[in-house]
Simulated assay, not measured.
Amino acid sequence: MRRLIAQLARFGVVGAVGFVVDFSIFNLLRATVLSPDEVHSGPFWAKVVSTAVAIVVNWIGNRYWTFRHQRRSVVAREGFEFLVVSLGGMVISLGCLGISHYLLGFTSAFADNVSGNVIGLALGTLFRFWLYKVWVYHPDRVERETTDERDEVPATTV
């Protein structure tokens, strides 16, 4: 239980850094080149870009800190699975933003931030932590990969 609490705390710190990156880039883009006054779908695209950058920041933090004892030897596979889960979280956040901004008509910067960066982020975070824990960084998968690598016999030359 203690290890889980520590892991949740590290996940929270990494997530907080990712949030600052996401929030900052989203608001910068929304206020400038992707302003809804200039680009109708600007807030949506600002959220896509800001989340994509935050995904990279979060992967590095989670791989090398939060789940460092459970990271996998096949970096490309782990990165792909992390990306899939993170994109699922992004869809949740974009869904909240889309419903609020385009369906309900709450188009202020404040409303976009509440829907995309508070509600969407909270729901997406729960989704991501659960799938990171049970799929991407699951201890049995890490152990199985390590065992499989040890069981491989290198080819010898005669």
Rank of each mutant, 00 (worst) to 15 (best):
G42Q: 06
P36G: 10
T147Q: 15
S24C: 04
S24H: 13
V49I: 11
E145Y: 00
S100V: 00
V17H: 04
F23C: 11
F26P: 00
N117V: 06
V91G: 04
F44Y: 14
S86H: 04
A46Q: 10
G88D: 06
S35M: 12
W59N: 09
A46C: 02
F67D: 08
T147H: 12
T146F: 07
Y64C: 01
L94S: 02
N113V: 01
F19T: 07
G95N: 03
K47G: 01
F26Q: 05
V153M: 07
F80W: 12
H69G: 10
A76S: 14
F44M: 14
M1A: 10
T107N: 09
P139K: 06
Y132M: 11
A31Q: 09
G15D: 08
Y132V: 05
N113D: 14
R128W: 04
N113H: 11
L28F: 14
F110I: 08
K47M: 15
Y132K: 08
N117K: 08
T32L: 07
T51K: 07
I55W: 13
V153G: 12
R77H: 07
P139N: 12
E38F: 13
A76Q: 14
F26L: 08
V74Q: 13
V75K: 03
A52Q: 07
G89Q: 00
Y64T: 01
T146S: 10
T146C: 06
V14N: 11
W130E: 12
E149L: 15
Y132C: 01
W45N: 03
D140Y: 08
L28P: 00
G124Q: 00
F82N: 10
V153K: 05
A54Y: 03
S100Y: 02
W130Q: 11
K47W: 00
L8K: 13
S24R: 09
I60S: 09
E81Y: 13
V48E: 03
A16N: 12
K47T: 00
D140K: 15
G105F: 04
D22E: 13
Y64D: 02
L126R: 00
A54Q: 03
T51V: 02
S24A: 11
A52C: 10
V74W: 11
Q7N: 06
Y137R: 03
V48R: 01
V48H: 01
V21P: 09
S24P: 09
R71M: 05
C96E: 13
S73A: 15
W135M: 15
P43R: 00
A111L: 01
P154H: 08
A122G: 10
G18I: 15
A46L: 00
D22A: 09
C96L: 13
V136I: 05
L8F: 14
K47Y: 06
I99N: 02
F11W: 06
R10D: 07
G116A: 15
V39K: 06
I119E: 01
A54R: 01
G61E: 04
G124W: 01
L34F: 04
I55M: 13
G12T: 03
L121N: 14
V13Q: 07
V136W: 04
L97M: 07
R72A: 09
G79K: 02
E149M: 13
I55Q: 01
G61A: 04
Y132S: 05
V14P: 00
G95F: 04
S24V: 03
V17Y: 02
W130Y: 09
D148F: 07
R30I: 03
